[in-house]
Design a binder for these strands. Sequence first.
DNA 1: TTTCCACTCCCCAGAAATAGCGAGGCGGCA
DNA 2: TGCCGCCTCGCTATTTCTGGGGAGTGGAAA
Lengths: 233, 233
Amino acid sequence: MEPILEDLEQAEGLAALQSASEEIRDHYGVDHVVYHWVDSAGDQYGCGTYSDVWRDRYLEQNYLRVDPVILGCFQRFHPVDWKRLDWSSKPARTFQAEAIAHGVGNQGFSVPIRGPNGQFALFTTSHSCDDDVWAAWTDAHRRDLILIAHTFNEKALEFEPDRAPEQSQALSPREVDAMTFLAMGYSRAQVADTLSISEHTLRVYIESARFKLGAMNTTHAVARAMSRGLIVV
Amino acid sequence: MEPILEDLEQAEGLAALQSASEEIRDHYGVDHVVYHWVDSAGDQYGCGTYSDVWRDRYLEQNYLRVDPVILGCFQRFHPVDWKRLDWSSKPARTFQAEAIAHGVGNQGFSVPIRGPNGQFALFTTSHSCDDDVWAAWTDAHRRDLILIAHTFNEKALEFEPDRAPEQSQALSPREVDAMTFLAMGYSRAQVADTLSISEHTLRVYIESARFKLGAMNTTHAVARAMSRGLIVV
DNA sequence: TTTCCACTCCCCAGAAATAGCGAGGCGGCA
DNA sequence: TGCCGCCTCGCTATTTCTGGGGAGTGGAAA
């Protein structure tokens, strides 16, 4: 796997990542290799070997909110085999049927990746084969896939500087306190009481946090603070 | 490195992680190997080969908020050499001097790791040597260190069940819609408009989502929906 | 030294969210 | 068939949040 990873590490530009994903697919002999980025705005960047038809369909139908791979990986740290996800809901099953019809493959293995400011991405390989073959393949290449996922994300962050670091202003300690207690369900009065400050003062923090986070209201500010990893609840 | 990683993968219990860190230190011939977990509430868990004196000092002084390794890695995705961090501030330099006095070593390499719900951890190796030797060493073992960091965190999450995703009642599709748009900063009127329903109806969804999530208000409900991965924002 | 930022406190009016009550139709499941 | 969950709509009153103003401290950086 060495030369494959070297190629990826030396990729320059988004087009190079696209061709790297194709190289990886061919190298490992799987049907598909996909890296994609899930953003707080629902914006997405991705590259990989899925057909254009399927990718457009996915975006158009907003499958982001249905896809068990996304929903499942979002709650995990471990790389996960698609078999271990929850495909039981009805929308999930129709999604699955459609995905397979579009040649995605019946097997899959996804590595969740998280960066600063709540960045979340997925590196996925998928294939059509039976369970034993797939289990053997994932077992053999699990470590490679983690490293490739890591490198993909490194590259994606490198080429998309506006999205990644430093872009979001840090919150002051008091603002973090305020956001944290609000996320825990406290009312403004309760938060002010907990922090032993006046409610007026608290409001200044909330306003300034809202401003820094570019949020339209308190709920929005808390959501952004969470998704950017600025507060932990 | 294979057997080292195998050992780590098969570690059972926190004590095993501790001895794994010592094995890794000896295997790579560095001064220290440390994995630790950083939480908004403070250090929750850590293991490694730093002296007890230094560890206690670190906690007691709350160096978490000073340590350039923590502060720098929190903004990054890439593994980072300590030389590339910002040691310029006065508190950082006194911290550095003290760390070296405690045998931490003048060189270091840290891998940031992120899990679900804003979990953040660091895997660090440190050593005493000159720049060239250290650069050669990190170059040679960078990939190993990423995999070890990954495995350490996997294990730590495994042994900390309170951090594991709790089972929660699913939201209905309309409730998910409502929570999602609220998390995006829409007001109730805007959400109702977007979903083409009356604001009264929307309110019913919000209330029922609040009830299902055991939340005290809308902000709380959105925060819980996010941290449980019920909505993707 | 000045300038900046974080932190603290205050008032007011209008907008928004919440709490409580109610109603009916549709579809799945036992 | 009856129950249950989901979706849809209505009312009133109260509480809470938001958006404008304003002022003063202290510490850290330039």
